[in-house]
């Protein structure tokens, strides 16, 4: 099983450790890792801000880079959603339509890949802590990935998994939204963090670095005890990798 890594911007530049954890887990389940050098961004920040024309070359470049891979796996739901779903809203060159369709069918978010493609029901391991899980919006609603991460968490032997209130309510990040309407975004993050705190969990697990950066930023800034953790880091830690 050959897995080409798609490492989104935030993972590349802010949370490389989580991406490394993903590599460890993928190797652990026997995948052969392939890194496509020269990859950059999928174009999502510009797309969400209304710039479509500008990112067509980015999307076409992305499709060409990954077109011949068996599987493409990324530690982010929103970036996968961009490629799988929103590339269809771009005027991609007709010559690349087939490649775009193929890519949409073989690009997977990390937990989705583990559970649905690699048929891994859980990795076991040990993590004797209380954790809760935040459903990232694109992951949950665009890709329908809700159960897969929970299944992986529950399979850890001694983890205490607590569902927080409204685990699927937006954390307030929304990319450029968090800058454009910062006050509003912060109010939303505050609410999310309150639910995390009230759950009593030590760690808020997530599968998208962008939400985690936002949540972590608030928790840290306000001296809260709860910490955030990418699910790849959780799995790697529980297996001692």
């Amino acid at each position: 099983m050959q897995v080409a890594l798609f490492i989104p911007c935030l993972s590349e530049h802010l949370y490389p450790q989580s991406a490394m954890s993903m590599v460890k887990i993928l190797r652990h389940i026997g995948a052969e890792i392939d890194y496509v050098d020269g990859q950059t961004c999928c174009g999502q920040p510009a797309f969400n801000s209304g710039y479509r024309k500008e990112i067509i070359p980015i999307a076409e470049r992305f499709i060409k880079l990954f077109r011949h891979k068996q599987y493409v796996v990324a530690p982010s739901g929103s970036c996968v959603a961009m490629v799988r779903k929103f590339y269809y809203d771009l005027d991609i060159h007709p010559n690349l339509h087939q490649a775009r369709d193929d890519l949409a069918a073989k690009i997977f978010e990390f937990t989705e890949f583990l559970v649905d493609v690699a048929r891994c029901d859980g990795l076991g391991g040990s993590f004797p802590h209380a954790v809760t899980y935040h459903d990232s919006c694109h992951l949950n609603r665009e890709l329908g990935i809700h159960e897969q991460p929970r299944q992986l968490i529950r399979a850890i032997a001694d983890v205490q998994f607590i569902e927080m209130e409204q685990s699927d309510i937006c954390c307030g990040f929304g990319g450029t939204f968090s800058f454009k309407f910062a006050d509003l975004s912060i109010a939303m993050t505050e609410r999310k963090c309150r639910y995390i705190e009230e759950s009593g969990a030590e760690y808020c697990i997530g599968a998208d670095s962008s939400c985690l950066m936002n949540i972590e930023g608030f928790l840290r800034r306000h001296g809260k005890k709860a910490k955030t953790m990418h699910i790849a880091d959780l799995l790697a830690a529980s297996l001692g990798l």
């Binding site: 490492i7 949370y15 490389p16 490394m20 890194y35």
Partner: peptide, 24 residues
């Protein structure tokens, strides 16, 4: 410092090595 965003939230720290360097 990120205007607005930063006021009540810390922005993540950039990692100069990045994933690519680490992985390679």
């Amino acid at each position: 410092p990120a205007p607005g965003y930063w006021r009540k939230r810390a922005l993540g720290l950039f990692d100069s090595r990045g994933f690519r360097r680490r992985f390679l």
